[in-house]
Design a protein around this nucleic acid. Sequence first.
DNA 1: TTGTAGGCGTTATCAA
DNA 2: TTGATAACGCCTACAA
Lengths: 346, 346
Amino acid sequence: MVTLKDVAERAGVSPATVSYTLRGGEHVSKWTEERVRAAARELGYSANMAARSLRYGKTGMIELVVRGLDVSTIYAKMVTHVKHVCTGRGYHSLVMQTEQDPQTLRDAVGEINRQSCDGMILDPCGMTANAIRKLNRNQPIVMLDDYSGTRIFDNILTPHEEMAYAATRHLIETGCRRIMLVGASREQAAAPGVTPVVGLRLRGFLRAMDEAGLMVADAVDDRMIGGEWRYFVGVDLGRELVDRGGFDADGLVCCNDTLALGVIRGLADRGVRVPDDVRVIGSDGITMGEFTVPRLSTVELDVHGMMKQAVDMLVDRIDGSYDGDARQTTASFALHCRESCGCGAA
Amino acid sequence: MVTLKDVAERAGVSPATVSYTLRGGEHVSKWTEERVRAAARELGYSANMAARSLRYGKTGMIELVVRGLDVSTIYAKMVTHVKHVCTGRGYHSLVMQTEQDPQTLRDAVGEINRQSCDGMILDPCGMTANAIRKLNRNQPIVMLDDYSGTRIFDNILTPHEEMAYAATRHLIETGCRRIMLVGASREQAAAPGVTPVVGLRLRGFLRAMDEAGLMVADAVDDRMIGGEWRYFVGVDLGRELVDRGGFDADGLVCCNDTLALGVIRGLADRGVRVPDDVRVIGSDGITMGEFTVPRLSTVELDVHGMMKQAVDMLVDRIDGSYDGDARQTTASFALHCRESCGCGAA
DNA sequence: TTGTAGGCGTTATCAA
DNA sequence: TTGATAACGCCTACAA
């Protein structure tokens, strides 16, 4: 490998001068600058990152830790936006998938201590802020959707309740009366170890239904069906809905888009068409939803805004321009009507 | 931050001893080991990666450079597999998206020179091996689907021709007679700057058609329609196929799955149903294809095998266990019949 | 069995 | 305007 010293020798100056020159130092003679640049070019010099990081005490890297890029393509969206925002702020970004594995998550948090990045944007995947604090030596972390309630880290919330409310509300306003929630149930929300997110979705749904006077008390639990928010779970749920008999829903609020797509698929397996037989609305805004048959109506999360917030908060912590209490913000969202909600606005 | 020295002081031994002990040195007294470990734990010590990399001259990182995680979810699959294989080989993996931007690709290759990773698995995105060699200071690179013909870097090929052949063949065998190729045309293949991959797909398609005596010479070009392999292009193509009139195809071979999904969507916009009105087969094997309506039949690439190959080749180069001529292998694939090809095997 | 010393490549300080 | 020097934190001969 080519080092500063090699360039210095070739240019006939000291390593210090090369370093200074190459990084745009002000008081360098024309003559020196030319020689140094020429030498660097000829030798194909690039600064060694490890050495630079060691010297600076910073890596210039921000790591994004998510469940898995294939869980929902919303994560791929996050990756893309984080990258852009980071680039704009002079940082590089780096992705890590935990794949729902607590040990991998642990390792990820460990990485920050080994200074392989300056800060981390972290989907805690059910791990509590306290547990993470224990693993973390005071390095900057921004959490995504942390509901531990502790104000330990900066935190960006997805407005689950409001999104569920908006989705439900839309179905109601466009004529649905027998609406079901897919991806959350009271039973599921009450189960130990389940993310509070489920409860929030539930609440948003119930609030909209109650407001419209559509919730018949003794049938409440028949109108909600729990399950992980993934394709294949959706497929099973869609089939189950029909198979258990008496399926009379005219609208389905799904807790995210992949789940919704799965449900539509499962329903199709049983001959139920969307939106003709039942209307469906998802949540997240994955790109794929624009191209499915039917196109998926959804409550789209402002991923860009969210990631911008995250990176900004993080960078402020890293460069020390903010070191106060943990901050918390909530991302915004917007209803996108395509075909599956059958409202005709598409 | 906590350093080796801090731990040493706390344990009352030298930094060297701490380093040695912590990495499982053999000849350490019980007493020393205990004190060192206790001190490290209490202080929450983790070795600084930059320092370690600098010392070793290695980072333990392998970087995967792809177009974009949202271009096709096949890339997300690659990421996942690379990660697993790397972990098994004692490396960490790192992803970078070029987003079709030549400058970003350039930067990516630059990264390897700055030693931020020990090696790189690279989708050259149209850049030639020669151009990349010029940017690269002799660092290990494994190329994905490089068709520059130069044997400069280890290279893993996607069997485009064979995959197109297999897809076409399947449609023929299951009764299609008026088959079209979507995503490649002679015009496109002949255009300057277009990836050779288009020509390969074309060739596979034509070979299968010729063998079956299904290609009427003067209508050849009507049976192929070019375009980038992305959702929205597929949507346009699907519509166009119908809009230009005389659409009589009974089978569509699409160059990849996202394109196929787009085409199905575009066709649906014009009231053409898959597989009832026309059969469709894609290529790649994205997860989403299992859940769409209709489920997408596809020629599935063995992404895991491909990434295993890539990482193995790379690691051999990195640790010096191989330093011969550039090697080249071809990934394998398998036909997956679901619903869209309408063969009934699903 | 443990400690000393030197160096990995870079940069900041300060002196020349 | 340039150069010598001393870190940054870690690891490993080699010495004790």
